[in-house]
Amino acid sequence: MDMSAFREHLRQIRSRVGFLEDTDLALIGAIEKGLPLSPRPYAEVAAGLGISEQEVLRRLAALRNRGVIKRLGVVVRHRELGYRANAMVVWDVPDDTVGELGRCFSGYDFVTLCYRRPRQLPQWPYNLFCMIHGKTRDEVQARIAQLVQECGLESVQHQVLFSRRRFKQCGARYHGVTTCPALADAREADYAT
């Protein structure tokens, strides 16, 4: 994407979320692909934007406090780190108890994501989704059994969808500004399950 298209994207973002200033958007664009690996990374970013290091620090802290930046840090390739059993577990939960169960799930460290999503009847009755990552399928199954028991789900229908292959895993893409850093291995396959 060339810079004029990039700027146009930023203008569009701004028109939707008026509270982000141009400098915030430029900053977001500047660090989107990653922070520089140098002793003063924010000074480097600041120099690229023509603002001071202090301004970068102040704006980043504010973006984080406002929740625009969820966190700074690393994203791991979980499979390469031994988390080779990755299950999406879906539950058909009565609508009036889905919130209660979602909160019960969120009490477990091994539940890494949990959402309520729409059913697609008649083909798909499941409305509560959670992700469980583990090193083996047995470990994941044991954790699901623990959830069933401790959150009282014996009578709730669920299914476990283990992943077989991953085609893409990108950084947080937004507004077309990012190119997918994992695009080169979009065909990367993982059969180890």
């Binding site: 989107e32 692909k33 990653g34 625009v68 969820k70 390739r77 895993q169």
Partner: peptide, 11 residues
């Protein structure tokens, strides 16, 4: 490529 990225996670 043990880490995919090092930087901000946006909402």
């Amino acid at each position: 490529r043990i880490l995919t990225r090092f930087g901000p996670m946006y909402q």
